[in-house]
């Protein structure tokens, strides 16, 4: 019953290919390396922060196949073939993401260590909001969305406000689009 255990072979680095912020990358990842380690120390993407390293703080939040997950709990070899988004991939064409703009405008960061994780959790919420039929912005829901991201500086108020302002822009855009399509239907 016992299969041979090729430990020495399996512990060598494995080539892992995945989509990183929309571009394919291949890295040689040792099997015991987590995604946050590969991102920071092999790919030099230091935007993703390494905080508690045991799933408590959310500073390492990245999106895998769209869903916010903890890069410190994810083995790098298991993202083979998947899509990974980090804070570096948020803005488009050199322009900041709406969340990055509202965080800056409203002063939603103090030391800034939790900010990349907050942005990744919030960006998934904004994307989800854009797919809803009649989206509304609710501070309680925003708090729940950010429930896995700890901030030791701000007291969260300005973070929730910044997400709410960006979320309202999403809702307004959806309403404008809906009105435009209604107008077209009437024509």
């Amino acid at each position: 019953m016992t299969a041979p255990s090729p430990n020495h072979a399996a512990r060598a680095a494995t080539l892992v290919t995945f989509q990183l912020n929309g571009e394919p990358v291949t890295v040689a990842a040792p099997p015991h390396w987590t995604l946050v380690e590969v991102l920071r120390y092999q790919l030099n993407l230091t935007g993703t922060k390494q905080g508690c390293d045991k799933g408590d703080c959310g500073a390492c939040t990245v999106r895998v196949d769209g869903a916010p997950v903890l890069a410190c709990m994810t083995l790098a070899v298991l993202v083979q073939g998947r899509s990974v988004e980090t804070v570096e991939g948020l803005g488009v064409g050199g322009e900041p993401h709406p969340l990055q703009r509202t965080f800056a405008e409203l002063g939603a960061a103090q030391c800034g260590f939790c900010t990349p994780g907050m942005l990744m959790s919030a960006s998934a919420y904004l994307d989800d909001l854009a797919t809803r039929d009649a989206p509304t912005v609710d501070a309680v829901e925003i708090s729940a969305v950010l429930g896995g991201n700890l901030c030791r500086c701000t007291g969260y108020t300005k973070i929730v406000q910044a997400v709410a302002v960006a979320a309202r822009e999403v809702v307004e855009r959806a309403q404008t689009l809906a009105e435009m399509s209604n107008d077209e239907a009437m024509l």
């Binding site: 255990s5 399996a10 099997p31 015991h32």
Partner: peptide, 24 residues
Amino acid sequence: MLRLPELEVVIADSLVAALTRLAE
């Protein structure tokens, strides 16, 4: 930083393969 110890990671391609390794 809290690192994982060195590990062998097996990606199971079948239930039989997974159970075989777990039986070790």
